[in-house]
Design a binder for these strands. Structure first.
Length: 561
RNA sequence: UGGGGAGUCGCCAAGCGGCAAGGCAGCAGGUUUUGGUCCUGCCAUUCGAGGGUUCGAAUCCUUCCUCCCCAGCCA
């Protein structure tokens, strides 16, 4: 991707890097993005990806992609593949630096033996419950395990037998020998290896013991020559352990761990566990459901990589817990889509408009620019005829104040076509308006007149006879609560916005018959849409990425207030 | 009431002793064949609170308050 040459607002991590560079502590910035392949990546990961890869790009350094795959019972190859696709789609490249913590298993094992030989680790047979009680509490120190003072030889023998599969799962673990009375809980002899007789997606059945995160991560960083190991705030408590392990081992270098606040977004759940539940319980159609905050979901929804990167740039990086307003994300998407989406016409909630003075069988082909603000984008031709579909919401029987769309006696412009004046409307027995009658002014072909007439309203439309039927999926936030993550003891099913997905049968202009999945357009006056993979030839399916801003809605709200 | 972090505009966020950047949202106008875009203007005498140091403090010291994280053989 292109090098970041524009000035970025500073943040505490850039300040640290600047200092390290000028002090000569760091020659070349080397970061890494270390996902665990136990789920799909979400916007929160996007923030981390942009931070790690972005920092490397900006400082002419490098960034590795490393899978933290030390817990085979939760990890799958499907996730490994999806994660790589998502990082690439976001616009980042790890070149030949694709790594897996599992590639270091043998090396890690040797380091564990090194710890044992030096009296810094021991095999402990306390079971889970005993471990917990020996650990003490937040305010009381723990007490030493009865197995803590075994000799290195004894421990080495036991650990080798663990590796050989002589013990059952849970029978024992390897623990770092640190300090059971440390006020830092994670320093109270943390487990660093446990027995798991589970098939690993990459190492198969080679191992029945697997290293824990704290042991694996710092060593992996050191082996790869990482200079700045950036992670989220909850690992701040682990930093003393990160440093302790590296200090006890003959590793090639000692990376600096730096913690930043993870991203929270209003109306959005960011916990992988809960996202998994949404998928498994069937509340959404899958990890790439367009309502999901996953990168895959957002991609399907129509978000662009540029907009996501811009968003990550604008939210900044700091250490204070924060929750970003969803409108900022929407702003970033609109900003990019506005500059890159061709405009086309689609009527989502149709009502018939009959041009009573237009010839019965006549069909005109009108030239319609794909983007009037930039004619270089070219145009297509759109059929116009006596019977059209227009948006139900563009007609008001009562002609409210400040309303300049269609209403009895009012003249509006049909974009690219003619000025029309509403003469009449037809209601059904239930009292609903079902058809609108209007007359057109033939002198306004193309949608313009030079007589200085003031026509404030411009409507989009589709010729009824030529209109193409399309399915349109309208999305709203998946959750009604602005902070779903903080809601306790309420099942997901009750938290979901019942209107998060509304499927509508729309009429779209015929030029859209052959669009390819992934194609993005703006439906004039309505919003930005992206063609879904579910589309069939001649029967497209559109996902609404984001609506256009609607200032009439605000005016109307004030009028009604 | 152990330890580790954080508190600057409704939401993010710069600032690191010299007198409160920027963005989003909001508000008021202008332009407009999208009530979109774009453009213009407004939007923290104040930085969690109280003391103190200083000619001068959001920035230093101090006391207090609030919030987040840690007691997985998860990451």
């Amino acid at each position: 991707m292109t090098e970041g040459t524009d000035k970025k607002t500073s943040n505490f991590i850039r300040n640290i890097v600047d200092q390290d560079l000028s002090a000569g502590k760091t020659q070349q910035v080397h970061t890494r993005f270390p996902p665990e392949p136990n789920g799909y990546l979400h916007v929160g990961h996007a923030k981390s990806i942009c931070l790690n890869f972005g920092l490397a790009n900006d400082y002419r350094g490098i960034c590795n992609l490393r899978f933290d795959d030390t817990n085979p019972s939760k990890e799958e190859q499907e996730y490994v593949d999806a994660i790589q696709a998502d990082v690439k789609w976001l616009g980042f490249d790890w070149d030949d630096r694709l790594f897996f913590a599992s590639d270091y298993f043998e090396q890690l094992y040797q380091y564990a033996e090194h710890l044992i030989v030096n009296g810094n680790a021991y095999v402990c047979h306390l079971d889970g419950e005993q471990m917990r009680s020996y650990r003490g509490t937040l305010t009381e120190p723990g007490k030493n395990s009865p197995y803590r003072d075994r000799t290195p030889d004894e421990n080495l023998d036991l650990f080798r037998r663990m590796r050989a599969g002589e013990f059952e799962e849970g029978a024992c673990v390897l623990r770092a020998k640190i300090d059971m009375s440390s006020p830092i809980i994670q320093m109270r002899d943390p487990a660093i290896y446990r027995i798991k007789k589970v098939h690993h997606h990459r190492t198969g059945d080679d191992w029945c013991i697997y290293p824990m995160y704290d042991f694996t991560h710092c060593i992996s960083d050191a082996l790869e020559g990482i200079t700045h190991s950036i992670c989220t705030l909850e690992f701040e408590n682990h930093r003393p352990l990160y440093d302790w392990i590296l200090d006890k081992l003959p590793v090639p270098c000692h990376p600096q761990q730096i913690e930043f606040a993870r991203l929270n977004l209003t109306h959005t759940l960011m916990s992988k566990r809960k996202l998994l539940a949404l998928v498994e319980e069937g509340h959404v159609a899958g990890w790439d459901d367009p309502r999901m905050p996953t990168i895959a979901g957002m991609r399907r929804r129509g978000y662009t990589p540029e907009s996501l990167r811009e968003f990550c740039e604008r939210i900044g990086v700091a250490k204070a817990d924060s929750t970003v307003d969803l409108p900022l994300l929407e702003f970033c998407v609109r900003e990019d889509l506005n500059a890159h989406s061709p405009r086309v016409m689609a009527v989502l909630d149709p009502i018939k408009l009959v041009i009573t003075n237009y010839p019965e069988d006549q069909v005109e082909e009108l030239d319609a620019a794909y983007f009037q603000d930039n004619k270089a984008w070219g145009s297509r031709s759109v059929p116009f005829s006596r019977e059209l579909w227009i948006e139900r919401d563009d007609f008001r029987e009562d002609n409210p104040k400040k309303w300049f769309r269609l209403a009895p006696g009012q003249e509006v412009r049909l974009k690219f076509a003619y000025y029309v004046t509403c003469q009449d409307f037809v209601k059904n027995e239930a009292g609903d308006v079902v058809e609108i009658h209007a007359t057109y002014d033939p002198a306004t072909r193309g949608g313009w007149s030079n007589d200085g007439r003031k026509v404030k309203g411009t409507l989009h439309w589709v010729s009824a006879a030529q209109a193409l039927a399309a399915e349109v999926r309208l999305y709203d936030t998946l959750f009604l609560d602005p902070n779903p993550g903080s809601v306790k003891d309420v099942p997901l099913s009750e938290m979901i916005n019942p209107d998060s997905l509304r499927v509508v049968q729309a009429w779209v202009e015929p030029s859209l018959a052959e669009v390819e999945a992934g194609h993005r357009v703006q439906f004039e006056r309505t919003g930005y849409f992206c063609v879904d993979p579910d589309s069939k030839r001649g029967r497209p399916v559109f996902n609404r990425t984001v609506t256009l801003k609607d200032s009439w809605a605000k005016i109307e709200a004030k009028l009604n207030a």
